[in-house]
Structure formats: structure tokens, C-alpha cells
Design a protein around this nucleic acid. Structure first.
Length: 561
RNA sequence: UGGCCGGUUGUCAAGUGGUUAAGACACGGGUUUUUGGUGCCCGCAUACGCAGGUUCGAAUCCUGCCCGGCCAGCCA
């Protein structure tokens, strides 16, 4: 039967939620959360999770919280908290008044831990970290009970109290859940609940000497916030029995954990640890380097929030490990910007053209369409004069077949202006390099068209020499040379696949004056080149543009053959 | 030699016992075009990891096998 035409893409999580609603589970309420740890900047993989969690809330008339999972003060910083909030907002999502921090619940977590001890479900262990590892067993061998496993409740209470008061040193004592040291699931072999960490927390400062572990804290955070569906990535699948165990033993509201496959992209890495390494070791200029797959990096590169959200919808959500072709991300940007980006003229590699039969001091204002895909974008005037710059690539002295740009004796159209014909090539006597083209123009072709049926196939962008502004343009390529950067010889790591040509800086570019009027962050299509955005480091004296993504280039493809 | 999860076209991904096995990207071809851009048209899995079985009928159910991922932090 014909399904509804515009039904949003289905995935297994939405199927589960739909069933839960049908069964009136949680009174058909849907409440999700996005729970980042503030130990780095958000990347496109987080964007997938954000779109999923906020998107589900929206689709099912529910709510989505932003909650910082800040249970490890050693790795977390306020800078990351701020960047994460900025990024989520920028992506277009609103947590309204539901901004939470796991650290706000530390008192409650402490009480829950006490309850576990009192119920005989937790104990203080005094084994060393090394001994604990040995007692845990291996993947194929069961673990064995700690000699401290059967301490009395009273003794456990006293020791835990001392842990809390800072009377015991890091690594000497550990609160553990009393579950089953022989479980085939290692997460159930008496996992840690609280560890001693005499570190200052970015929000609770020095109030605590003990901090809860993820497995204990996370489910309780969800429970406290009455989350109905706790969506996380696949590596937590083995933790679900433990997630459920804590909630059952404590007899509190029990959200359902659902796991999905994290996003991988070709030609990049997607772990905060590795991204941090790239930043710390200066392989990139920072978390917002336009080559980074971080939300901040993509934003600076010129990606729009819409294109990222559309990408996240397009890739889908499933449980199988997969790697999405980065070409799809680029496609989503082109698709969005094609509709919205103003077209402007910018010459990346300038070649001077003198139009010999054009009056010396004449300047004409040519009318240019701002966006052929959007009539409401209107038109603007651009100055034309006797000397212009065109792109070096748009001229070839000895062109191959099917090259329909400029060459000696051939005619092309200067977009919005005139047809010109190449009459003479001028070169540097010493180097042989082509320095200038002498051309003639056809006054009858004003606007770039004649009605005489002439076939002028090539169209070049250009900018008037006297009116052009200098600009720096940064061209970006994949950060890694391999689709899978982890594909390295033994003994090497992903850094071995860093692309030495991931950034190319062009310092002698010529752009039209109208670019001065736009603020940093504005995006454009540089005609026939690609989409670019004005960098935040841009100044009026020195404009800087980042290439967000090139236009598709059929000619380049033909040439490769 | 442990447990859990997965395996549908080059890449993602719908599909939940009866469909010509969606869609997108990529790729190839054509067309339109004052961007070799865009748009439009066409092509792209007799096939669902493999082998059996159940059934009138299987990508969907069952059994066995193979392959991939994750787990032995006082990280999340």
C-alpha cells in the first residue's frame, strides 16, 4: 500500500520508540538527551548523535536535554563546555531550560552508593590497581573474588566515608559493585563505582575527593532526568546489563538504553583522542582548523548547519559498523549552497588580459545575476575595463581536443561582459612564462551574448585589473592521504598518513570589490571554482577566504582520462 | 578456547513471509545551459555472507558454518 510520501526516514530506533508509544510505555512520553563529556570539541559524529536525539524528541513531541557527563575532572575543561554549547546551538538545536551537569548530581550519586553498600551490593576493595586487573581474569578465564569482597557493611561504610573525606590515597581503595567475578561479560566482574581522585573539578572545585564511574553515573543521570530512551554508541552494548543492574538494584526510574553505530568518514579520523593529538602536536592550527571534522572546523570551513543536518538525516542510523564516503558530506554542502550562495568573481591564479580595441580609460558597469537559482537574490554591477584578469587555467596555447576555453585565435565569453578573441601571447623573455594575453573584443556582444548564432562555448570569470582587490585564498584537501587513515604499516600510527598537501595557500588572488561588504563567515560561490567562505581572520586590507568545497569539475575528469 | 553485536549493489541504507529488492552518494551515458556548475533523462543487486532446512512462497523463520566489530581503564 502506498506509504505516505514524505515520511521521515525510518530507522530501528524510531521503530522501537514507535512501539513503546503504541504500548503506552512511560505514558507515551519521549525524552532523550545528548550527553557529551567536556573533554574535547564536538565533531561530525557528535552531530549525528545530536541530530538523532534532538530529532527524535522533535518528531515524537518529546524533549531532549543537553547534559554534560563531567565525572572525570582530570580530562575536562570549561573551554570544552563552552564550545559544545556553542556548537549545539549553531547546529540549530535548543535545550531550552534543560541544561544539566552530571556533577550537579554528585550528592545523589553518593547517597545511591551508600544504599548499594547498605543493601550488600557494593564493597570497598583494598586491592592495588594491578591486583584488581589480575583478579579480573581474562576474556576466556573467569575472575576470582577479592579477599576484601566480604567486608561487613559497617566496615564498608567506614572506609567509603574515609574515601570521601580524603583520608585515603588515590589507588588504594575503590568502591565496587558486588556482582559476579565469573561473568562472561567483564563489565559485570565487580565493576568500579567510585574511585579516589584528588583533583579539582571545573564545577564542584575541591568538594569531592571521590568521583563516580561512567557505568554507575550514566544510568542514574538518565534516571534522575526521567529519560525514556538513552541512545548511545555500539561500544556500550556490553555495558547495558550493568546499566540495567544499577537501576534495578536501586529501584529507580529505568530508561532504556539503545545503541547505534558511530559515524566514520573516509579520509579523516573521528576520535577525540586523535583529534586532540592533531591539535596538541600542531598538525593543524586548532580545534577549528578548517581541515578538522569538528563542528567548529566545518563551520570555519564554510559548512552550513543545514547541510550538516541534512547529511545526518541522509546517512541513516543502524547497528552495523560503516564508513560514509566524505563525498556525501561534500554533496550536502554543494546542494545547500547552490541554492543560497551569491555568485561572485574571483581569480585564483591571475593572468592579465589586455583588450587592445577597448577604449583606454573607459569603465563600464556590467549587470551580473547574483544567483541563477534564486531570482530574489537580484543583480549587481561589476566594473569592466581594458585590462582584466582571467584564470590561468582558462588559457592554453596548444589546447587538446574538446578544450573550449581561450587559445590563440579562439573566442570565449567573459561572463556578463563581452566575447574576446586571443590575438597574441606575451611571455617573459627569460623564463618563457606567459605573462599577458592581447585580445580583441566584440562590442556587439555586450552582456555576453550575440544573436548572430555564433557558437561561443567557453565562458570565463574575470575581474577588472584596476578594480580588483587582493585576497588570500586557502584551498583544503583531505587531511589524510588514505581513505582509512588507520591503514598503516606495523609500528606506525595514523599520523603516517597525514596529507602534506592538505592546505594550499594562494596569496595573489584577485577578487571583486563587493566581497568587502560581507562579514566573516559569509559564503559565496566563486564562479566556476567552488564555494568559499570569508575567514574569521579576514581584514579589509587583507581578505582571506576558505574553500569550503570545489564545484564538480567534469573537465578535470575528462582530462584525467 | 569466552561473551555481546553485526553481515542487502563501489559507499551509506530501506526492507519485519508474497515488492520489478526503496532512496541517496559514487560511477557511466545523454540533454539543457552566458558557471565544463545547476537542472532534467537513462543505466547501475534475477540478487540479500555461505550451506542446508521449514513453507505454495524466504533478504525476512530455523540450523550449522564463515567473515567483521567491541569487551580484560580506578576513561567515557
Amino acid at each position: 500500500m502506498p506509504d505516505t510520501d514524505n515520511k521521515p526516514s525510518q530507522n530501528f530506533i524510531k521503530t522501537i520508540i514507535s512501539e513503546d508509544i503504541l504500548n503506552n510505555k512511560n505514558n507515551a512520553r519521549v525524552h532523550t538527551r545528548f550527553p557529551p563529556e567536556p573533554n574535547g570539541y564536538l565533531h561530525i559524529g557528535h552531530a549525528k548523535s545530536i541530530c538523532l536525539n534532538f530529532g527524535i524528541a522533535e518528531q515524537f513531541n518529546g524533549l531532549c536535554n543537553l547534559r554534560f557527563d563531567d565525572t572525570n575532572p582530570a580530562k575536562e575543561e570549561i573551554e570544552y563546555v563552552e564550545s559544545i554549547m556553542e556548537d549545539v546551538k549553531w547546529l540549530g538545536f535548543d535545550w531550552e531550560d534543560r541544561l544539566y551537569f552530571a556533577s550537579e548530581y554528585f550528592d545523589k550519586f553518593y547517597e545511591y552508593a551508600i544504599q548499594l553498600i547498605k543493601d550488600g551490593n557494593a564493597y570497598v576493595d583494598s586491592l592495588t590497581p594491578d591486583e584488581i586487573r589480575q583478579y579480573r581474569g581474562t576474556l576466556t578465564e573467569p575472575g576470582k573474588n577479592s579477599p576484601y569482597r566480604n567486608r561487613s557493611i559497617k566496615e564498608n561504610m567506614e572506609l567509603f566515608e574515609k574515601m570521601k573525606n580524603g583520608e585515603l590515597e588515590e589507588g588504594t581503595h575503590l568502591l565496587r559493585a558486588k556482582i559476579d567475578m565469573t561473568s562472561p561479560n567483564l563489565n559485570m566482574r565487580d565493576p568500579a563505582i567510585y574511585r579516589i581522585k584528588k583533583a579539582s573539578h571545573h564545577r564542584t572545585n575541591d568538594k569531592w575527593c571521590i568521583y563516580p564511574m561512567y557505568d554507575f553515573a550514566h544510568g542514574l543521570e538518565d534516571s534522575i532526568e526521567k529519560i525514556t530512551h538513552s541512545i548511545c554508541t555500539l561500544e556500550f552494548e556490553d555495558h547495558r546489563p550493568l546499566y540495567d543492574w544499577f537501576l534495578e538494584k536501586l529501584n529507580v526510574f529505568h530508561p532504556r538504553q539503545i545503541e547505534f553505530a558511530r559515524l566514520n568518514l573516509t579520509y579523516t579520523v573521528m576520535s577525540k583522542r586523535k583529534l586532540k593529538k592533531l591539535v596538541d602536536e600542531k598538525y593543524v592550527s586548532g580545534w577549528d582548523d578548517p581541515r578538522m571534522p569538528t563542528v567548529a572546523g566545518l563551520r570555519r570551513r564554510g559548512y552550513t548547519a543545514e547541510s550538516i543536518r541534512n547529511f545526518c538525516d541522509t546517512i541513516g542510523v543502524a547497528k552495523r559498523e560503516s564508513t560514509v564516503d566524505i563525498a556525501l558530506l561534500e554533496h550536502c554542502l554543494r546542494e545547500d549552497l547552490n541554492k543560497r550562495a551569491p555568485r561572485v568573481m574571483a581569480v585564483l591564479h591571475p593572468l592579465k588580459v589586455t583588450i587592445t580595441n577597448y577604449p583606454d580609460n573607459k569603465v563600464e558597469q556590467m549587470q551580473a545575476v547574483n544567483n541563477p537559482e534564486d531570482e530574489s537574490a537580484g543583480t549587481r554591477l561589476i566594473p569592466f575595463s581594458k585590462t582584466v584578469y582571467i584564470e590561468k587555467d582558462d588559457f592554453m596555447e596548444n589546447p587538446p581536443k574538446k578544450y573550449f576555453r581561450l587559445s590563440p585565435g579562439k573566442e570565449i565569453r567573459l561572463k556578463h561582459a563581452y566575447y574576446i578573441k586571443c590575438e597574441k601571447v606575451i611571455r617573459n623573455e627569460n623564463t618563457g612564462e606567459i605573462t599577458e594575453l592581447l585580445c580583441t573584443y566584440d562590442p556587439a556582444s555586450k552582456g555576453g551574448w550575440t544573436n548572430d548564432g555564433r557558437k561561443v562555448r567557453g565562458t570565463s570569470h574575470w575581474v577588472s585589473v584596476d578594480h580588483a582587490l587582493d585576497a588570500e585564498i586557502r584551498l583544503y584537501n583531505h587531511l589524510f592521504t588514505k581513505q582509512n587513515p588507520e591503514n598503516v604499516p606495523d609500528g606506525q600510527n595514523f599520523l603516517a598518513n597525514i596529507n602534506p598537501d592538505s592546505l594550499e595557500i594562494l596569496k595573489n588572488c584577485k577578487v571583486e570589490q563587493s566581497l568587502l561588504d560581507y562579514p566573516a563567515g559569509s559564503f559565496f560561490q566563486f564562479m566556476r571554482q567552488g564555494y568559499f567562505s570569508k575567514d574569521k581572520d579576514s581584514a579589509n586590507e587583507k581578505m582571506i577566504f576558505n574553500r569550503s568545497v570545489s564545484l564538480k569539475d567534469t573537465w578535470a575528469k575528462i582530462q584525467k582520462k
